[in-house]
Design a protein around this nucleic acid. Structure first.
Lengths: 160, 160
DNA sequence: GGCCCGTCGATAGGCATGCTATATAAATGC
DNA sequence: GCATTTATATAGCATGCCTATCGACGGGCC
């Protein structure tokens, strides 16, 4: 089956949605992903977060510092290893996450609201069928445990 | 009809796709969109590009300068109005655009390739049905001619 | 014609977020 | 107990965006 047309269509849809969210970002994409990871998986160390989000360790250190200043995360220490900094989401961080998700969902719902209902239904069903597999496909590779060196060992892949 | 589930699913799909494209970007999102606009609609002035892409005029000036240094666009002047700078894509710019699109399409096709064919077909059909309307819905609003002031007059909307 | 004002683009300065290279501190191995 | 490895922090730099403001051109009105 030829995937180029759906691939390009999907690409365009993503571009439309991402572009629609113009304006000042309160939280960067990486910040949201990091908070989300901390929310789902509990306290994690800096290096783990860095490799999971695909940024360098210093970048993650700085991101955590910014998030800490804003009260969205807290730092703890690992009783078993004095070097590690265990990062935790605060309630405020969780709230920011929820608010952010809701705004995005509303924006997208606004786009969908203009479409004929059968089309929306077809899209909804197709997404529901496809998402679990894509989650599984992307997830494991992105969260490869890594952390052996100081560097993130990333492929030089174009982003979007 | 309840749009929250499809909206959240779509959001997650976008997040998966955007996050999948980790790594060094050769061209920013705005750069690609600008080149694409120049390719589709021919030479345009800085201000028009800025409002169309939702960035400030100085940002667009700088982006065009960077793109010009890399040979991806060229500047001309409007014979009818000495103030305006008409920006054009070069062949090299078009080539960069094609290469970029192809890499992205391949990446997404790679994701789709893991899915059962009927699911892909359903998604492809749903996308094809939905895209024209969304294009129309998002396009006009984003390219409102504006240009009254120096400032871009943007709403403070969270991006993605 | 000459002046004022609006519009177009450029410049200056600042902030956020990423990077690489390297430093510091704790743990581990001989 | 000192060298090595590992976890994080710091320094310095690049990019891409912003606001504020400047200089240049164009158009209307006297």
């Amino acid at each position: 089956m030829d995937l180029s047309r759906p691939a390009n269509d999907l690409l365009e849809l993503v571009a439309l949605i991402v572009k629609g969210g113009s304006g000042r970002r309160d939280l960067s994409l990486t910040a949201v992903a990091t908070l989300s990871s901390l929310d789902r998986q509990g306290p994690q160390r800096i290096t783990t977060l860095a490799t999971a989000e695909g940024v360098s360790q210093p970048s993650m250190t700085q991101l955590i510092q910014r998030l800490e200043q804003r009260g969205l995360v807290a730092r703890g220490s690992d009783p078993a290893d004095g070097r590690v900094a265990l990062v935790t989401v605060t309630d405020q961080g969780r709230a920011a996450l929820v608010a952010r998700r809701q705004r995005n969902a509303e924006r997208i719902a606004g786009l969908l609201a203009d479409l004929p209902e059968p089309d929306v239904r077809a899209l909804a069903d197709a997404l529901a069928a496809v998402l679990p597999t894509m989650r599984a496909r992307v997830g494991p590779e992105a969260s490869g445990q890594g952390g052996r060196g100081n560097r993130a060992e990333r492929v030089d892949q174009p982003r979007f």
